[in-house]
Design a protein around this nucleic acid. Structure first.
Length: 695
DNA sequence: GAGCACTGC
């Protein structure tokens, strides 16, 4: 092996290696943002009877565990601060117990007497598992005093006082009631993740709080919890000072590369084998990489090298971990490995927050991540490998210290890291805003004046308004005003362009088909393409191919899936992703419920599939491209040069003169993903405002 | 003739 990359973990660096222990510094709390004590403050009520019963039933071992949590000792202080201030900002480190304990403190203090306590989470699984844990602590069943609400699943009852929910659900609820009247307290957990939903919620809860004060309604208490990085920003926005909660994690020693590495995969590989030679065999390794292909390739390489080289004292077991992997394969990395074997997990940033693998003592961080961003002027989606942020680097290294002291090897220099952005850019600054803008309008809020913690660029907002105007959802771009159509569009948990497809489908006579297609388009790729089994897979997929293009192919797959009984075997035999198809089924059911509520006729076009294709134009009229004589396509709006993506059924075959596409993505080139042939004449027929200039 | 990170309603 090339020795210039070797890491000497004992400090005698050779090449890449170098030992630079780095301590994470905590910024001292700033006091300038202290809020004044409100004058109309009333002390909370006494504990409810429900809670007294709960206390009586609580098991002592759980009680001991609770007392050991760092947050437990801050109970009085948290309650006191919350009495004095309506908003509380808590910097809670991993393992502080904030998410499970603070809601219980609030309930105990009587905050759940006139309204419930809501805690938002960025992820479904988190909302569910935390609710279950807290129910256990309170010796009740989920759905009694404690419950959760996530999409497709609501465990709460009228008895529920503490409710864990995803931020998306709370945002939906806000559309129904801007003042969030059913809540007496809301905790926005993991605020530093800065999801689009959370960013919008910040503004909404802030306004709800002010408005309730103005209307002399019951108070809305807010607790924002975040990791340490962005705390000043939150402090200024909410006009409060932060409170620090220590965590319970172990120290992680950080090692940076001594020299710049131009091949981070190779650097990771060499580092791994160095760890394997020098570290105790029971220290498991987690390697952060950027994507599926990279992960599978490196996994192969490691397995081979381990076999040939036998370089280490013992064996290795390699696991891969990324979102598209089946549930079963994902769970494999949780299984214990035989003695004298090292567990090596190659993961995307799914292992950064979503999945925690026990036993990890070493992390190798390549310093890159694949990130999606949206360019409003070209309508281009960019999926690029970019540098991670410094915050992300710390998050990754922390994964080595969950169970015991650990080590983190960074395949980039300490110097290089200073050039990394300090925090990941909030998603709202790089997302397509059509959906967000409409949701805000449904709330009666104009995006131009909304109090964003970080306002998106004007251009993105304007282009979102323009799209909404073309969809018939708003009246004017300069002074946007939501229409009845707009209100209907906002009813669907979909991109407004997809929602439009459902609103227009009845008049094309293809609602049944469109419900299925939109549901399927909303789920991730249903086709499984194996590198080693590609011939078998494409043979299986060929059965579903429609000459019209990818949309009707997808529809055929989903329709067959809906009819089949033994879905598991069928999906396996046909190289289809059962998880994504099942998700599509759930989405379809939800969409159909909403359609029924809106009195939309569920009609079917049978074999007249032109109806489906025409209907697609009604929402995706911005996604049309024309074939040029040079052989590439040019998008109608945005005038981008692009080619049909190789994954398309229309790729490499006859090139239709006019196509409709789902997405324009830039990777190495511009690609049109999911395409369908349409007639040029249909465009003006379906959307009269679009004029096609020939040649 | 190339390849898509991660969430969520």
């Amino acid at each position: 092996m090339d020795s210039k990359y070797l890491i000497g973990s004992n400090g005698n660096a050779r090449g890449l290696a170098a030992v630079f222990p780095v301590k994470r510094k905590l910024e001292p709390m700033k006091e300038q943002n202290v809020i004044k004590k409100p004058n109309n403050y009333s002390p909370p009520k006494q504990p409810t009877q429900v809670y007294k019963n709960v206390l009586a039933n609580r098991k002592t071992s759980i009680e001991q565990e609770r007392k050991a949590l760092p947050v437990y000792h801050c109970r009085q202080r948290i309650l006191k601060e919350l009495e004095a201030h309506d908003t509380l900002l808590i910097m809670g480190e991993t393992g502080s117990g904030k998410t499970t304990q603070i809601p219980q403190f609030l309930m105990q203090a009587g905050y759940a007497n006139q309204g419930i306590i809501g805690i938002t989470q960025p992820r479904r699984v988190a909302a569910i598992t935390i609710a279950k844990r807290v129910a256990q602590e309170m010796a009740c069943n989920v759905g009694e005093a404690v419950g959760y609400t996530v999409r497709f699943e609501d465990s709460t009852t009228e008895r529920t006082r503490i409710r864990y929910l995803t931020d998306g659900i709370l945002l939906r609820e806000a559309i129904g009631d801007h003042l969030l009247r059913k809540y007496s307290a809301i905790m926005l957990d993991e605020a530093h993740e800065r999801t689009v939903n959370a960013d919008v919620l910040f503004g909404i809860v802030k306004e709800a709080q002010q408005e309730r004060r103005k209307q002399k309604l019951s108070k809305l208490k807010l607790i924002i919890t975040s990791a340490t990085m962005d705390i000043d920003h939150f402090g200024q926005y909410f006009n409060v000072k932060g409170m620090y909660l220590e965590g319970r994690t172990h120290p992680v020693r950080i090692m940076h590369a001594k020299q710049t590495q131009d091949d981070y995969i190779h650097a990771a590989l060499v580092t791994l084998f160095d760890i394997h030679r020098n570290e105790p065999i029971n220290h498991d390794v987690l390697i952060f990489l950027t994507g599926q292909e990279e992960i599978e390739a490196l996994a192969q390489q490691i397995r081979q090298l381990a076999r040939i080289n036998n370089s280490g004292p013992s064996d290795v077991r390699v696991f891969t971990l990324y979102a598209q992997l089946s549930q079963g394969k994902q769970l494999e990395c949780f299984m214990p490995v035989p003695a004298n074997t090292r567990k090596i997990v190659l993961a995307t940033n799914i292992a950064e927050t979503s999945i925690t693998i026990p036993g990890i003592r070493c992390v190798i961080d390549c310093g890159f991540v694949k990130q999606k961003s949206f360019n409003a002027s070209s309508g281009l989606d960019l999926l690029k490998t970019v540098r991670i942020s410094q915050a992300q680097a710390w998050q990754r290294s922390g994964r080595a210290g969950r169970d015991a002291p650990g080590k983190c090897y960074r395949t980039y220099t300490k110097q290089a890291m200073t050039a990394f952005p300090s925090a990941t850019q909030p998603e709202i600054l790089r997302a397509n805003l059509t959906s967000t803008v409409l949701q805000l309008l449904a709330l009666g809020i104009d995006c131009y004046s909304f109090d964003f913690i970080d306002a998106p660029e004007q251009q993105g907002v304007v282009s979102a308004y323009k799209t909404l105007e073309k969809l018939g959802g708003i009246k004017s771009v300069t002074v946007p005003c939501i229409t009845t159509t707009g209100r209907w569009l906002a009813q669907f948990p979909l991109d407004p362009r997809y929602a439009k497809l459902l609103l227009s489908a009845p008049s094309f006579g293809c609602m049944d088909e469109m419900l299925s297609l939109v549901a399927a388009m909303n789920s991730d790729n249903v086709f499984i393409g194996h590198a080693d089994k590609s011939e078998l897979a494409s043979l299986a997929h060929a059965k579903f191919q429609s000459k019209h293009g990818d949309h009707l192919t997808l529809l055929k797959v989903f329709a067959t899936f809906q009819k089949i009984e033994k879905t598991k075997i069928w999906c396996h035999d046909n190289f289809l992703n059962i998880r994504n198809l099942t998700y599509a089924r759930n989405v379809r059911n939800q969409l159909q419920e909403i359609a029924t509520r809106l009195n939309l006729a569920v009609n079917s076009c049978g074999d007249n599939l032109d109806a489906v294709k025409k209907c697609l134009i009604s929402g995706l009229f911005e996604n049309i491209a024309m074939l040029q004589k040079e052989g590439h396509y040019l998008t109608l709006s945005g005038r981008q040069k692009a080619r049909i993506h190789p994954s398309s059924v229309l790729h490499g075959k006859y090139k239709p003169p006019c196509i409709l596409f789902t997405e324009l993505v830039q990777t190495e080139q511009n690609y049109l993903r999911q395409v369908t042939e349409i007639s040029i004449e249909w465009i003006e027929e379906v959307v009269p405002s679009i004029k096609i200039t020939h040649k």
